[in-house]
Write a protein that binds this DNA or RNA. Structure first.
Lengths: 209, 209
DNA sequence: TAATTAACTAACTAGTTAGTTAATTATATA
DNA sequence: TATATAATTAACTAACTAGTTAGTTAATTA
């Protein structure tokens, strides 16, 4: 392997990586193409050479992230023996991913609160795949008499919503913890303890007594 | 009452009202001061005459919204007899407000996913008041032996997160319902039925068996 | 090694946006 | 009724930003 001065794939990957970081941190509008170029140490025009435009780059970034999480969730799902196992895997895999890729929940929340202004179609179907998986787990559980009174859409948002808020507010909560003594903002609970708590609570909530 | 050509208070209120609508719909960055001025039928400079700058206007708008919701929740809380009543009132009042003021959840999500970039301090303390109230309800319930194994921060985000996602995705879900037959996105469940479901499920989740 | 292509850049354009200035109009008050 | 003051505007600027163009340099191939 010769050390190359030019490596298109690596450059492209670098641009995507930095875009992901910046879009997640600052959102679509507040991220400038100039900024992406500077951070990535490439000329701005190169971004237009590789990607159609800013929205096109954004779409690729989102696609990459959403595919990654879907793959992980599916992977974790494969080795499960029961709907309860599957529910646990779903929650913990999602939480773990969101925690390790902490920009992702912010991106997702922002995009949802924009009504998918920037990437309507793709976003949409990616999120649907994830929801469909959980939906099937819950309905299977209900058929088997393990769960009862399930509204999958609400349970899905309960999981996604809770995890996303916990991850996105983590820095804010850390700051709050230093300021006040009275309120416990859970600022040093590790994510795997929290996700275990969420799973156990949702299990209680759904299980037939 | 004479019909005036000039009414500073009314003009100011009009600007705030339209700002709230636009900021909520499009976020801070994507809302332009020109747009606010046009919609409000005033000259842009008037906005700078009344408000320090764009961020100052945004802060006032946010303050107004957050105070309104806090007032409603406190009001509903007053007539409650038990922690379970209080929990029910908290969830349903918040959900009702979010549903009637459907831009608010989007604003909140966006602001949280920005780490409070635009209005750090005020936003912060407004959200804390709301959390403190729920926190006290839950801890009182735990002391009275009604609830068990409560982590208020997680329960708070479970409520806020679920409601916010349901409200912000409502138009998206409606669109999805037309496209596919297989997945039930809860697109025509009325909010008060959903908030009742959320309350009942969270009650089960927290109550001592 | 010459020709061709792929990777990359400097410098620009056209359009947008927050914020300002200096002037104008309406209203209250002396 | 004159005048001060509060409300409002037209017209501007400085800074920024998405996207383009015309060109350069490195790598590949004939």
């Amino acid at each position: 392997m010769s050390k190359q001065k030019r490596d298109a794939e690596a450059t492209k990957a670098k641009i995507i990586e930095n875009s992901m970081m910046l879009f997640s941190k600052n959102g679509f509008d507040a991220t400038t193409v100039d900024e992406i170029a500077n951070v990535s140490d490439v000329n701005k025009a190169l971004i237009y050479y590789y990607f159609k435009n800013k929205a096109g780059l954004y779409e690729i970034v989102m696609n990459e992230v959403l595919s990654a999480i879907y793959t992980k969730v599916i992977e974790a799902n494969k080795i499960c023996k029961s709907p309860i196992d599957e529910l646990e895997a779903f929650i913990k895999t999602y939480a773990d991913f969101a925690n390790k890729q902490p920009y992702f929940p912010a991106l997702l929340l922002r995009e949802l609160s924009d009504n998918g202004a920037h990437i309507p179609q793709m976003m949409f179907s990616s999120m649907r795949r994830l929801f469909k998986l959980l939906s099937e787990i819950l309905q299977r559980g209900e058929k088997e008499g393990i769960f009862n009174n399930v509204i999958p859409m609400v349970i899905h948002f309960m999981i996604i919503g809770t995890v996303n808020l916990l991850v996105t507010t983590a820095p804010l909560r850390k700051k709050a913890a230093q300021m006040t003594d009275e309120i416990n903002t859970c600022s040093d609970c590790p994510m795997d303890e929290i996700s275990d708590y969420i799973f156990k609570k949702i299990k209680i909530m759904l299980e037939v007594k």
